[in-house]
Design a protein around this nucleic acid. Structure first.
Length: 225
DNA sequence: CACCAGGCAAGTA
DNA sequence: TACTTGCATGGT
């Protein structure tokens, strides 16, 4: 077909990268801070997560031991700006308890577990689901896993690039089967999807004609053998 | 004012 | 298994 366009996940990435340029995403100062940020970021804006992280840092609570020993209601108080502060305080506790149990509180050792094993450990922690686990794997452990989030679903669904019934793992598999497993690329791809989602693919809005991915709407991404 | 933000677990049928 | 609901502050 002379008028067909080549729709691959690589081309979609290239299109976004050309439109927005490279992304310098926020990165926490330490791996533990990354993990905490991943939990605080659940269904919350990062502006507010940063405030919570800053107050934790100010109070010198960014340590496994401190999070385990600080009274839950006091810990929760620092988390207020991030929302869901009671639940998130407990979730931070659960993660730190897990790190303590497995490696005596040694974060480096904890993150050095084999990728598959670490993922199983993470999702077994109450309060850590698929996306939070993958965020920790990519950003804190430096493992090449693709993070699927609500923006990823919404952007691809709205452009009719996938059925609404696909699961987290099916979509993750699609990306990981068709992209090179490169940490930096996965960082960038995810960041660009978040950007496109915020700018051109918001909830309760129709397909946006200004979206750089608009020309791909209705095509089925070709898959490598 | 209404709506939304880089989810997750628990409850219901 | 497949929905629905609670959690909560702060920005647009």
């Amino acid at each position: 077909m002379s008028d067909s366009i080549d729709v691959t996940l690589g081309n979609i990435y290239a299109k976004m990268h050309k439109h927005f340029g490279p992304q310098n995403r926020w990165l926490a100062e330490t791996p533990l801070e990354m993990m905490i940020g991943a939990i605080l970021g659940q269904n919350s804006s990062w502006v507010n997560v940063d405030k919570a992280l800053a107050s934790l840092r100010e109070a010198k609570l960014l340590e496994v031991e401190k999070i385990l020993t600080t009274p839950l209601d006091r810990l929760a108080d620092y988390l207020r700006p991030a929302g869901y502060y009671n639940i998130k305080a407990q979730r931070l506790r659960n993660l730190c308890q897990c790190i303590n149990d497995l490696t005596g509180g040694n974060v480096e050792k904890f993150l050095a577990f084999d990728q598959v094993e670490l993922r199983e450990i993470l999702v077994s922690v109450k309060g850590i689901g698929p996306e939070t686990a993958d965020s920790i794997l990519l950003y804190a452990a430096g493992q090449p896993v693709f993070i699927v989030d609500s923006y990823t679903f919404r952007i691809f669904y709205r452009h009719q690039l996938l059925a609404d019934s696909v699961t987290y793992y099916e979509l993750q598999e699609l990306f990981m089967d068709n992209l090179s497993h490169d940490v930096q690329t996965f960082h960038e791809y995810h960041a660009l999807l978040v950007l496109v989602g915020k700018k051109f693919c918001r909830k309760s809005h129709p397909l946006c004609s200004k979206c750089p991915l608009q020309e791909y709407a209705g095509w089925v991404p070709s898959v490598e053998e």
